[in-house]
């Protein structure tokens, strides 16, 4: 549990630092410069249904788990 609280504390601190700093910075990539970023080939995950399935494939066969991106909290499907 101590490990969990440490991670939580670190998480909250990182979040607060970024939220507080956000008021002071100008965006360095202007809205009219974001065409390439908006291209579908630049999505970290194009299709949730496909991504979720691959996470399931990995989690069922590898001990590593977590931080795969996307929402949700695992399927509990050993």
């Amino acid at each position: 549990m101590q490990h969990t609280f440490f991670v939580l504390k670190r998480t909250v601190l990182v979040g607060l630092v970024f939220l507080l700093s956000s008021c002071a910075l100008e965006p360095w990539v202007k809205p009219y410069e974001r065409d390439n970023l908006a291209d579908p080939i630049m999505k970290l995950s194009r299709d949730a249904i496909s991504q979720n399935y691959m996470h399931h494939v990995y989690q069922a066969r590898e001990a590593g788990r977590g931080a795969e991106g996307g929402s949700g909290g695992g399927c509990g499907c050993n």
Partner: peptide, 24 residues
């Protein structure tokens, strides 16, 4: 599960995401 994701536009051609997740 406790998770944090920070996604950042770095340049007009580059985006990155840092993820942290703890599971008990």
């Amino acid at each position: 599960n406790y998770k944090l994701d920070w996604t950042q536009v770095i340049t007009k051609n580059w985006i990155a995401s840092l993820g942290l997740e703890t599971v008990t």
